[in-house]
Simulated assay, not measured.
Amino acid sequence: MKKRDIILTTISIVALGLFLIYANSNFNPYQIRILNLCAIYVVLGLSMNLINGFTGLFSLGHAGFMAVGAYTTALLTMSETAKQRTFFLEPMISPLDKITLPFFVALLIGGLLAAFVALLIGAPTLRLKGDYLAIATLGFSEIIRIIFTNTQNITNGALGLKSIPNTTNLWWTYGTMVVTIMVMAALINSSFGKAFKAIREDEIAAESMGINLFKHKVMSFAIGAFFAGIGGGLLGNLLGAINPAMFRFVLTFNILLIIVLGGMGSITGTVISAFVVTSGLEYLRILDESINLGFIQIQGITGLRMVVFSALLMIVVIFFRNGLMGTNEFSWDKLFNLLKRRPFSKKGVGQ
């Protein structure tokens, strides 16, 4: 990386930090919640894009990995008193009922446990391709959710967990987002990233070049699951309460929507799309409520928000078939080249 690019990137990170200081002081809790969700969905989108976009694996098991991370982080950060108050139907197993760890340690363990589960799932499923892999990973995700629903003395079953410490804030979410972007960019630009892309383009050609397909697929799957677990942990400690019903297929679909809209195989597109989708859905809530224009009052229609949002998505997909960014990435060189462009001179081409 050029010295100029390092300086500009550092300035951008400092500017982000200043913005977070301003937001913490001047934004209301609702606005801060939206900002937190945007950053969390960037982490989740990048983790899924690594598997689906860069490696070309059609996986639909992300909600399951998020559940592992969310439950692990929540259980390890809850106080002993909170656990006793939450597990009133059946006592929590020992020694988990007495363990309370710092948030960072619990978050890391949640990510590692999600990666371990991905290794267990990946061994039998990653030899499948296409729709078969999607169905298999979706099935395992549902199995994880059902297990969490029926393990009363570990996850509190269908009642879920409450009194989870609200540790997640703007610094945690945006700090994790920046680290995730940096790790993903370094990984994609490494020899492993080139192997992932080769597998995506043509598995037979990649294998003939000496790339171990199964090894690299499992690696991509586990790394993506790790960051999905991290995102799930951040989400659980942001909301303060979780239950198995949160981690249905719809959650995976929302993340898939982000990476398709931004561009399969684009880190920049995922970041932009995560902010657009998350904030856009909230700003369109006005369509579900009554609008008073002073001289006339327009009655809101329940569900109109999703209709308009879906129509906008259809327009974007029609005109940007590869997503907003395709496989392109942001770079300072591209930005400066764009700014240096000048319109044609008045003399015309033939003069």
Rank of each mutant, 00 (worst) to 15 (best):
K2E: 13
R4D: 10
I6M: 15
T10P: 03
S12G: 15
I13R: 12
A15Y: 08
L16C: 08
L20W: 01
Y22L: 14
A23D: 02
A23I: 10
N24Q: 12
N24E: 11
N26R: 13
Q31T: 07
I34Y: 06
L35H: 06
N36A: 08
N36M: 15
L44G: 04
G45V: 11
S47R: 09
N49S: 05
N49G: 07
I51A: 02
G56E: 02
S59K: 06
G61E: 05
F65P: 05
A70W: 05
Y71C: 10
T72Q: 09
S79C: 03
A82F: 00
P91N: 10
K98Y: 00
L101P: 04
P102Q: 07
L107G: 02
L108F: 09
G110T: 01
G110R: 11
A114K: 05
A115E: 02
V117M: 11
L120P: 03
I121P: 07
A123N: 12
A123C: 10
P124W: 06
L128E: 05
A136G: 06
G139Y: 03
I147Q: 00
T149S: 15
I154V: 14
T155W: 02
S163D: 10
S163Q: 15
T167I: 12
N169M: 09
G175Q: 03
M177T: 04
V179K: 07
V183W: 06
A186R: 15
N189H: 14
N189D: 13
S191A: 14
K194G: 01
I199H: 06
A205F: 06
S208P: 05
I211Q: 01
I211H: 06
L213V: 14
K217V: 03
M219H: 01
M219R: 02
S220W: 05
F221M: 07
A222H: 07
I223E: 09
G224A: 08
A228D: 01
G229Q: 03
G231S: 05
L235T: 04
L239Q: 15
G240Q: 07
M246P: 04
R248C: 01
R248N: 14
T252W: 07
I255E: 00
L256G: 01
G265S: 09
G265F: 05
S266C: 09
I267P: 05
I267F: 07
I267K: 02
T268S: 15
V271G: 01
V276R: 04
G280K: 10
Y283H: 05
Y283A: 10
R285M: 09
R285H: 10
I286R: 11
I291C: 02
I291L: 14
N292L: 04
N292M: 01
L293K: 04
L293M: 12
I296W: 13
Q297R: 14
Q297P: 03
Q299D: 14
I301M: 14
L304C: 03
M306Q: 13
F309C: 08
I315V: 14
I315A: 13
I315G: 08
V316M: 12
V316W: 03
M325V: 08
T327G: 11
F330W: 12
W332V: 07
W332N: 05
D333Y: 12
K340C: 10
K340N: 14
R341V: 13
R341S: 11
F344D: 05
G348K: 12
G348S: 07
